[in-house]
Amino acid sequence: MAKMLLNFGSKLLKSTKNWTSHKSSTWTNAQNRLSARQKLLGVGIGVLTGGAGVLLYALEASVEASSDMVHAPRQAWGHLGLLSALDKKGVRRGFQVYKEVCASCHSLQYMAYRNLVGVCMTEAEAKAEAEMITVRDGPDEEGNYYDRPGKLSDHFPMPYPNEEAARSANNGSYPPDLSYIIAARKGGEDYIFSLLTGYCDPPAGFQLREGLYFNPYFSGGAIAMGQLVSNESVTYDDPDVPASASQIAKDVCTFLKWTSEPDGDDRKLLLIKSVIISFFLIGITYYIKRLKWSCLKTRKIYFMDDVIASNKAKEKSNDNECPKE
């Protein structure tokens, strides 16, 4: 009776195994077909993405080729690297250039005096700088407006009361705000540096209206802003720094780079910390995964056919060992 049950169980197990193998082969074929479709879809998406990228590059190249201004050459800026920070002394000198040269026409309406603290000035220096301006404040308890000295929370003053006054003072041209000028112009600080140092005489046949100046780095070549940056146009407090036109332009570009990204150095530092912490966490995760799954991945699975065969082999060996009566 036990032998009959054993034979029935082995036949049932074989039929189950055949059905399982057939099902697994069907599932494998379905997976292969699905993987082929996925591969085809991935190739199609890759081709479309690459074609879109090539088209955008070609359009941008054609626009640059048809531009009406000279492209600004790249300069060796020390703050462009991932591990590089802005020159704080250069930012301080650039603020001096802005205050003495640029502030008469251009505004920095998104920057406050408190932003200078810890970057290029101490808190006392920034307070003294803010107190040099007069701010219209109010109303007071009696409903009157009054003038007071500036505070750290005040923004940089506007050179003109409104846009119409600015255009009237500059032959109809509106001086743009410089808070984010580096981020807003193609070429960034390279463009601003070339614009400040690129004034020259117009070529033969180029007609300039009265009140305009020729600059090949400006669109159209005619610009309403005159050449303000020249040798010794600013006197630096540091005698070791030459007040040449290129040095003055470099310093003000460094300052405007900071105004465009006040937290740029902090983001770089945060990125470095995130990468270091990520490597540490990835290592711990890999170790825990190996520790938890090693017992499952190294275990040995015995199938019923092998168990039945081994049991039969043991029974035969036991029968052979039993003495015959």
Score class of each variant (00 low, 15 high):
L256C: 00
F303Q: 08
L12M: 11
R167V: 06
Q75C: 11
A76F: 13
Y113I: 02
A52H: 10
G264A: 05
D154Q: 11
S246A: 13
H71F: 05
T16N: 04
L41N: 09
L291V: 00
C253R: 02
L296A: 12
D319V: 09
G46P: 04
S10A: 12
S219D: 15
N215L: 02
R290T: 05
H155F: 15
C120I: 00
G220H: 09
S173W: 14
S153C: 15
M225S: 07
G51V: 05
G220S: 11
G78H: 14
S294R: 10
C295K: 10
G150L: 14
R267H: 01
S310R: 09
K127S: 02
K292T: 03
A103N: 04
K23D: 02
T134G: 08
G9E: 12
G46C: 11
R136C: 05
P159R: 15
C200R: 10
W19V: 10
N162M: 12
W19S: 10
D266R: 07
V70C: 11
V47E: 10
G118A: 07
K186F: 14
S246V: 12
V117N: 05
F95C: 04
N318E: 15
M158G: 09
V229K: 02
Q38N: 14
R148N: 03
N320C: 14
K297D: 13
A166T: 13
Q207A: 04
P239S: 15
Y180V: 01
L271Y: 04
K89P: 02
R74V: 06
R209S: 06
P239F: 14
I284S: 03
A76C: 10
L116P: 01
Y287W: 03
M1V: 06
